[in-house]
Simulated scan of single mutants.
Amino acid sequence: MLLPSTTNEPASSAEVIAWTQRWLERAVIGLNLCPFAKSVHVKGQIHYRVSAARDSQALLQDLEYELNSLQALDASARDTTLLIAPDMLQDFLDFNDFLHDADRVLLSQGLEGVLQIASFHPQFQFGGTAEDDITNYTNRAPYPTLHLLREDSIDRAVEAFPHAEQIFEKNMQTLEALGHAGWDALGLQSPASGLHGKIVP
């Protein structure tokens, strides 16, 4: 249950992770938006890193560190990383511009073809859609988030999942059937969405 807060204090790292895990469990896994997510979640192979960065350079440094840390570990210990930036890039256009710099870091570390970066944002918007188009919510997370993935893990998941190329279309249909009321019922309106609150049992 979400209780509104009377303060505008920034969320703690624990709160940011709690909101992100709530989104993962209720939306990504609960709506089966990513059929590969449940396994790594259950096995505890997702690493959550909350960045304290308040400028792009600091976030790029955190990204470089997390990319190399993910590469250095065995997939059985850490298969994927969610790098969450609660204190910056609240405007989606700024976030979208930042992704070009993020890709340059991936290239500079020689990790192209080894790792890749996916993106999620509270105001995510696909090109050619209206801001309130429900299909945008497939990529709407509580906070600006960079998802660091292993190419090998993606390849194995795709091989194990028939018709993986149909996931995007299926997700669009799922969100259209759910509608805005159904999404709101998931209780994912985090502080980054404009509602300062906390999760309670």
Rank of each mutant, 00 (worst) to 15 (best):
Ser5Gly: 12
Ser5Met: 11
Thr6Ile: 15
Thr6Gly: 15
Asn8Tyr: 09
Ala14Arg: 06
Glu15Arg: 01
Ala18Thr: 07
Ala18Arg: 08
Trp19Arg: 04
Thr20His: 07
Gln21Lys: 14
Glu25Phe: 01
Arg26Gly: 10
Arg26Phe: 09
Ala27Trp: 00
Ala27Cys: 15
Leu31Thr: 15
Asn32Phe: 02
Cys34Phe: 04
Ala37Phe: 14
Val40Tyr: 06
Val40His: 13
Val42Asp: 15
Lys43Phe: 11
Ile46Gln: 08
His47Trp: 00
His47Tyr: 05
Gln57Ile: 07
Ala58His: 04
Leu60Asn: 03
Tyr65Pro: 00
Leu67Thr: 12
Leu70Pro: 05
Gln71Tyr: 11
Ser76Pro: 00
Arg78Phe: 06
Thr81Val: 13
Leu83Ser: 07
Ala85Pro: 12
Pro86Ser: 10
Asp87Pro: 00
Asp87Leu: 03
Met88Val: 10
Gln90Asp: 09
Leu93Glu: 13
Asp97Thr: 04
Leu99Pro: 00
Leu99Lys: 06
Asp103Gly: 00
Asp103Val: 03
Asp103Lys: 00
Leu106Met: 05
Gln109Met: 04
Val114Arg: 10
Leu115Gln: 09
Ala118Tyr: 03
Ser119Thr: 14
Gln123Val: 05
Phe124Arg: 02
Gly128Gln: 05
Ala130Asp: 12
Glu131Ser: 09
Asp133Ile: 04
Asp133Met: 03
Ile134Cys: 01
Thr135Asp: 12
Tyr137Lys: 00
Asn139Asp: 12
Ala141Ile: 05
Leu146Tyr: 05
His147Met: 01
His147Phe: 02
His147Glu: 05
His147Arg: 04
Leu149Pro: 01
Arg150Lys: 09
Asp152Ile: 11
Ser153Leu: 04
Ile154Trp: 10
Arg156Phe: 06
Ala157Glu: 05
Met172Tyr: 08
Ala185Arg: 15
Gln189Glu: 15
Gln189Asn: 14
Pro191Trp: 12
Pro191Tyr: 11
Leu195His: 10
His196Phe: 14
Pro201Gly: 15
